[in-house]
């Protein structure tokens, strides 16, 4: 079972009086098989957190542990834009991130491309696909390395509402089928309510302002009364919090 354990994480940009805090004393743990959404206004340190988790940035202080049954956890990423290699085909893009370049890896890639309904576009170049299709390749790529933990950074924010909705459905199904631990960053409260078991709310300056559990049965639909009501409730709670820097 995968576990994310974050302890007293701090991140500052710059030094001295000009320095800006992106994360302040952030601590939380995520146990396996949950989808946690991180919600907050822009500049609340969401992306910095993911950059630290993915090793692109180092924290000023604090520790991050991502483990799977005590051993190394494999981690997959889905970015805001698809970040595919434009000069490689869809299949080669998936193969690019595989550890072993063997037949079973190829079969696995094909399986996940089938799951995002792109099984017949393996030889296309990313430039020949629509934005939504590219993002689906990005999702298939993240799942194809069979990660224990998955980080997603506003993966649907560049897509139109209808495409985003169908991709959320696909994501939910893949999550259910594979039972990964997912950390999902978004600025869309509705999306967070629809997808996750738990929502972490970040406030400006990179502090955790709230931590709530969403206890609704899956599959959820944005049009369901219960989902819509929960969204309203969450938004109301936001009003009482000071999320934006004064």
């Amino acid at each position: 079972m995968a576990e994310i354990d974050i302890n007293h994480l701090n991140k500052q940009f710059g030094t001295g009086p000009d320095s800006v805090s992106a994360l302040q004393d952030v601590s939380f743990t995520v146990a396996g098989h949950t989808l946690v959404s991180i919600v907050g206004p822009s500049g609340c340190g969401k992306s910095t957190l993911l950059n630290i988790l993915s090793g692109i940035e180092t924290p000023t202080s604090g520790t991050v542990r991502i483990t799977e049954n005590g051993g190394d956890a494999r981690v997959g990423y889905v970015f805001q834009s698809a970040r595919l290699l434009p000069w490689r085909t869809v299949m080669d893009n998936l193969m690019f991130v595989q550890k072993a370049q063997d037949r079973s890896a190829g079969e696995r890639c094909q399986r996940f491309l089938d799951m995002v309904h792109l099984g017949d576009r393996t030889e296309s170049f990313p430039g020949e696909l629509s934005g939504g299709m590219q993002q689906r390749v990005g999702i298939a790529r993240a799942f194809s390395i069979e990660p224990d933990v998955l980080f997603m950074d506003e993966p649907f924010s560049h897509l139109d509402a209808i495409t985003a909705r169908s991709l959320r459905k696909e994501l939910h199904e893949m999550w259910k089928a594979t039972e990964k631990t997912v950390l999902f960053v978004t600025h869309d409260v509705g999306e967070a309510v629809e997808l996750s078991n738990r929502i972490l709310v970040f406030a400006a300056g990179g502090k955790i302002a709230d931590d709530m559990t969403i206890d609704l049965p899956f599959p959820r639909d944005a049009a369901d009364e219960a989902v819509a009501l929960t969204k309203v409730k969450v938004l109301k709670r936001f009003e009482n919090m000071n999320l934006i820097a004064s």
Partner: peptide
């Protein structure tokens, strides 16, 4: 079960190098 994988323990990354 908590082997440290991502050794991002960086408490001592003190930026004491004067800013150029």
């Amino acid at each position: 079960m908590t082997t440290q994988t991502d050794t991002t323990t960086a408490e001592t990354v003190a930026e004491d190098v004067p800013v150029e």
